[in-house]
Amino acid sequence: MNIQPVFFFSLTTVCFVSALFFLQTQRYSAEKYFLWAGCACSASALAALTHASGRMPVFADFESMLLTTFMLGVLISFGSPPGDSGTEVRRCGYIFVFILLSFCLISPQSHDQNEYLYHNVWVILFHVFRRISLALMLFASGFFFQHRKNGRKTVSDPAWNHLGRNYLILGAVCFLISEYSGMIWCQQGWGDFWHWSSVFFHSTLVLLYLMIAFHIPGRNENAAQIRSLLGGLSGVFFLAMTMIRSLL
């Protein structure tokens, strides 16, 4: 592999570790700057990968997870609550960033896609929106976990649940756009818009999980807690599905 992406990847890791350290020590200005630096470094790594391969960095696991890391970093930067409010949202975000970066290291390095797919718009949209969706769902998880954390101390704040729900629905919309692009890809490549395959089964599992998360009945505190638990685990579930599919 080219040395530039590896260099920027290492810097990304250092920056996000530092951001988490400063969050833990409640030095929020320093946290903000390291967070931005982490985003800039991951963007630089992606740019280096794109320059080296001449295609979008969405096909191999390493680059696609790095893209998700970048998107999650941007979401934490611009969408998370400021200062000492909602620290759990950012803490969760950083933990997910470390999981993504760890997966970058253990994932297979080879590009296992056919070369003729690299420049097809529907294939690219399929992969890009899947990564956006994963980043949004992981980000949403932070709000749900914040809701759960607050709930232990006092009556939990429904706004956290609602913000988590908003980002989760946005993630679901992106996931469906990815699915639609995949349907067009399947129609053009295999002659039908869907196929019985492990890819289809994995995607359907994610979709069904989201449907469950959105259909929890009840308006009381118990229902809100179940909703926040399932919502919080939705990003984890999607990430686990992505990892399983990649490693098997």
């Binding site: 930067s77 611009f78 969408g79 400021p82 200062g83 704040d157 956290w160």
Partner: peptide
């Protein structure tokens, strides 16, 4: 009435 607390807007 509570919307200001958990709203977005970047870390400070």
């Amino acid at each position: 009435q509570h919307a200001s607390r958990p709203s977005g807007g970047g870390t400070k």
